[in-house]
Amino acid sequence: MEAIRNIAIIAHVDHGKTTLVDKIMYHCHLFRDNENTGDLILDNNDLERERGITITSKNVSVLYKGTKINIIDTPGHADFGGEVERVLNMADGVCLLVDAFEGPMPQTRFVLQKALDLGLKPCVVINKVDKENCTPEEVHEKVFDLMFELGAEEWQLDFPTVYGSAKNNWMSDDFNVITENIEPLLDMVIENVPAPKVSEGTPQMLITSLDFSSFTGRIAIGRLERGVLKEGMPISLVKRDGKITKSRIKELHTFEGLGRKKVQEVIAGDICAIIGVEGFEIGDTIACFDNPEALQTIAIDEPTMSMLFTINDSPFFGKEGKFVTSRHIRDRLTKELEKNLAMKLG
């Protein structure tokens, strides 16, 4: 079996997740030396470029020291927390990125709670240690306190940590020692994130994400929990409500670099994309054709809008005054003009 590590990168918005993934891809030579791909490579749609934030999760894989590392770049904004929760089901560990100046932020708490509840191994990266007035040691203590407060188990509290600057392309076990690359981070992932647990039995894959192609239609994405999937293989689609429909896999793809690679079969533990299955939704299970067994489904939050109504604590609260309208402004300007004109004529 190929050595595989599945890891999700989680953090508060603008703490440097996508920049770190850029540096990992460059270090693992996904691009030619003369290829200029720019920054924030995975933020590839117009809205993400405009806002400067990650909105949808992205999958990318790199090969490092003979190990395939599937990396899931997750959104950092609280509005997209539901997607983070879903894609964490594909990971065996999380890389928690924390700003060395700001420390753990609200979204850090939310996504970390989900990761700990799923029993994922945390690896901590304290980023931006080159900032002025940053406190890496204090931030490390705050991360430990946060994990303890969130109910982390003892083996989760024993988390490894690296320090560095993703923007300047270095990571180190000691924030006072600047290295030449980000290898300490990749070594930490291989040594501490467990390999996927593989069970014996018929195929099972929980659909945790989806994609779309104008040529092939909707694409189901998830991690194969057990068994083997093959191109052209008949399968059963077990819906969230228990209904079972029969289908067939037209194409299988695994993630390779920034794109996907068409393969004949996928082994358990790897993240893959399936083309040809109709009528699926997130939370459905792809299972054996003859003896389908469903995996535990995942909850999908309905789109909501939250509003907070509080008392008026404005400094002008309780003070009497008149409403100012465009007519008042126009009358005032007219009076000022007449006054200035009279002064000039006089």
Rank of each mutant, 00 (worst) to 15 (best):
E2P: 09
I4R: 00
R5F: 01
I7E: 00
I9H: 01
A11F: 04
H15W: 14
L20T: 00
E35Y: 12
D39A: 14
L40Y: 06
L42S: 06
N44F: 14
E50C: 12
T54C: 15
I55G: 03
I55Y: 07
V60R: 01
V62G: 05
K65E: 09
T67C: 10
K68L: 06
I71V: 12
D73Y: 00
D79M: 04
E83A: 05
E85Y: 10
V87H: 01
A91D: 03
A91R: 01
P104T: 04
M105H: 05
R109C: 10
R109P: 02
V111G: 04
D117C: 05
G119A: 11
K121R: 11
C123G: 09
V125I: 14
V129H: 04
K131C: 06
N133Q: 12
T135E: 13
P136A: 12
V139Q: 05
H140A: 14
K142N: 10
F144Y: 14
E149G: 11
L150K: 06
E154H: 09
D158Q: 13
F159C: 04
T161D: 07
Y163I: 02
G164V: 02
A166L: 06
K167Y: 13
W170P: 02
S172M: 08
S172H: 05
D173C: 13
D174M: 07
F175L: 08
N176C: 11
I182T: 07
E183Q: 15
L185V: 15
L186T: 02
D187I: 15
P196W: 00
P196E: 02
S199Q: 13
T202F: 05
P203K: 01
I207M: 04
D211N: 12
A220F: 00
A220D: 00
I221D: 00
R223N: 06
L224W: 01
E225C: 09
G227D: 01
V228I: 07
V228T: 04
I235L: 13
S236P: 11
K239L: 09
R240G: 11
R240H: 08
I244D: 04
T245P: 06
R248A: 09
R248V: 10
I249T: 02
I249S: 03
E251D: 13
H253T: 11
T254Y: 05
R260E: 01
G269M: 02
I274D: 01
E278Y: 08
E278I: 13
F280C: 04
F280Y: 07
E281L: 08
I282Y: 01
G283W: 01
D290L: 12
D290H: 14
L295D: 07
A299L: 14
M307R: 15
L308W: 09
T310K: 15
I311P: 12
S314Q: 10
F316C: 10
F317I: 12
F317K: 13
G321H: 08
T325I: 13
H328S: 15
R330N: 13
D331H: 12
L333Q: 14
T334K: 15
K335S: 11
N340T: 11
M343S: 14
K344Y: 14
L345V: 10
L345Y: 06
G346E: 06
